[in-house]
Structures are given as C-alpha cells and as structure tokens.
Design a protein around this nucleic acid. Structure first.
Lengths: 190, 190
DNA sequence: GCAAACATTAACAGATCGGTACATCTTCGC
DNA sequence: GCGAAGATGTACCGATCTGTTAATGTTTGC
C-alpha cells in the first residue's frame, strides 16, 4: 500500500467513524468502504485502536488547519480572530454532514483516563487553548490562558448543543458571550 | 419482576451504561451485573434501545431533581441559583465516578436525528433551558430564554472539558463567565 | 392441594465483532 | 522470462453481539 493509499484509507476511516461512531463501526465496513481488504488494513495498523489514533491525528491536523486559517481569513486582529472563531464554527454547523466534535465523541466512547485515545482527544483541546492563548496575549489581555480556557468552554458548549439540537444557532449565542469577555468588561487591559 | 426490581434493573443498567458506554456494553453484562437473566430483561424491554430510553428517563429525573434542589440549597434568589448551578456542577465533577454527561454521550453514540434516543437526549437539555429561563425571568432579565440558552452552552462546555481533562476546574471558569452575563453587563434590566 | 399464570433460567440462533492463516496475485530486479 | 518479495483477497477463528426458544420454578386463586 502506497503512502497515498494509506492516507486515503485513514481519511476514509475518518468519515465512517465520524458518521457511525467508533464502537458501532466494524473493521469489515471500514475495509469495504475504503476499497481495501481487512488484511491490508491490519498490515499497517496492529489494532483498531491504532487506526483510530491515526484517524484522530489526521482530524487534529485538518481541523486546526481549517479553523485557524478561517479565523485569519475572517479577521485581521488577534481579538477579531477570536471572535471570528464563532463565525467559522457557524459555517461548520451549517455544513452538510456536521455531526459534532470527533474528539468529544472519541473521549466519550473511550472514557478510561489511561486510554491513548482518551488522552489524544484531550491533547487536541489543549492545542486549541494554546492558540487561543497566543491570540489573547497578542491582543493584550492579561491572564490570556484563563481567557483561552473560557473561550474553549464556549466553543465546546456551542458544538455540543448545535450537534444535539441539529441547529447552528449556538454559534452566535456563544459569540455574544465571547464579545462580552473580549470587549465588554472592566478587566481587560487593552 | 416487581416494580421495585424493574426500577432497580434500570438503575443498574444506568450505572453500567454510564461507566462503559452504550454500544460497548452488552446485554449479557447488564443481566449479570443486575442479577437478573437476559430473558427477564427482554420480558420488560423489547429491545436494548428501549432499555436505554428507560435509563435516560430515569437519568433525566434524577439529574434535574439533584441539580435544581442543589441550586436551591446553595442560593436563595433566582439570580443566585443560576450562579450556584456552577458550584453544584463542581461538586459533581469532583465526585467519584464522574464521567461526563450521559445525554451528550447518548446523543454522540446515536447520532441519527430520527433516533428516539437522540431526540430524548436533547429533550433533557430543553427541560434545563426551561428551568433556567424561568429563573432568569424571575430575576428580572429581559430575554430570559436567550440568557438561559447561553447558560446551557456554558454548562455543557464546562461538563465536556471537565470530563475530557479529568479536572473540575471548568466549573469555576464557566461560573466566572456566568457572573459577567448575570451581574456585569449593561444590558440587564434589573 | 392443585392448576393456571407468571417469572426465571440455560441453552441456543444467526449475525457480527476484532483479528489471522494461507493461498493467490502483482511487481520488480535482473 | 523467471524467481523473490511484498501486497492482496478469501475464508476462517473464537468471542461476543442482540434477541429467542423451550423447559423449569414460583407464586397465586380458590
């Protein structure tokens, strides 16, 4: 299997797991939908869990690349980018096939704190916080990390409710809260 | 099977599904851990899905009863109760066996919008919004329902991050945001 | 005490689970 | 053209999945 076919397999598996869930999706279906045999999959991934980890690595890259780029496209300043995140989320919520956050779902299906899938899922969230904190610092906020963690809470809450309600409205509802955090209060320094 | 035994079965199943996940838990395990035979379970529930629905009904009652009572115990005013919700959540996050929100997980494992489990999971969130909106109205806020929806976003975001990070800190981080919504802004009417 | 009604159980279907053994096919050096 | 090496597909493994069948206990009315 070439590098390309391997990447394509991971990308196919991503789509199936995202649509169907992890435990609910069998490796036979992954093989069939990917157009490769199960044996070939197991040549490259020792277990289903390892395939899932590869899927999550791809998703982490894809999602952060998309979100951060979109934030930059929508706003010029760091402060504006943090707010624009919620507009980007709204686009995602309205897109065909939106089914919530893959990492939340992976963490929910693999709850054990020792599980590599559980740890890797949260690592994605930490990378998001890092980026938010960088932007918050650049915008001149004191305690940028605390602000970043609050923005993460807003983002995850909006994703969960949008997915459960099948309605993109939570994006703007969360944005309104973020505006008060970023623009409104007495305790921002710039 | 008596009414009591049936209720106890549902309560047992709740614990197992909450700890293990829905798809990852087989009916044989539910039967074994509940001390009843699988046949007896299927006498009362036609399918696994029906058992899950019964579990979610119980969880909805239990959780709302607990949360609303705790909010009342912790604060006297409607406004205070809305803030105290996050203190109650913090207690939950620190409790043994906390594993996130059962309805978020159910919704994640049964994603189809037509699925009764999916719909019932979101119905729980709507009942929470109703209660928040009642309190926000009693506190004199205009647009109480919009505020209630924002509080829901904060609550769900805090739960998701607390569960993923195995850390109760998001409760107070979300509370700080709620304080700005409830107390800080120019656009509250009382 | 006895029969009807109900609850419970072990054993079993048929399908599918994650994962593998082995035979076949392709590819490549030379 | 041909042999070695790796990729692929088929068919299978034991375990487990949801759900059922048929036999056994247990309660209850009278």
């Amino acid at each position: 299997m070439s590098r390309n076919k391997r990447d394509e397999l991971i990308r196919n598996a991503l789509g199936i797991f995202y649509r169907n869930g992890f435990h609910a999706t069998g490796m036979d279906l992954v093989a069939k939908e990917s157009g490769v045999s199960k044996t070939s999959i197991y040549k490259h991934f020792r277990t289903k869990d390892e395939l899932i980890l590869a899927v999550l690595r791809l998703r982490d890259e894809d999602f952060r690349n998309w979100l951060f780029r979109r934030m930059e496209e929508l706003a010029a300043t760091p402060q504006g980018q943090l707010l624009a995140m919620f507009d980007a989320l709204e686009e995602w919520f309205m897109a065909d096939g939106f089914q919530g956050c893959m990492f939340i779902k992976a963490s929910a299906e693999f709850q054990n704190a020792d599980d590599a899938i559980n740890r890797q899922s949260y690592a994605h969230k930490e990378l998001l916080v890092d980026h938010f904190a960088r932007l918050a610092g650049a915008a001149g906020h004191d305690a940028p990390r605390a602000l970043a963690r609050q923005l993460l809470i807003l983002k995850e809450g909006a994703i969960v409710i949008a997915a459960m309600s099948h309605d993109p409205a939570p994006a703007q509802e969360a944005r309104a809260i973020a505006e008060r955090l970023l623009l409104g209060g007495a305790d921002i320094s710039v």
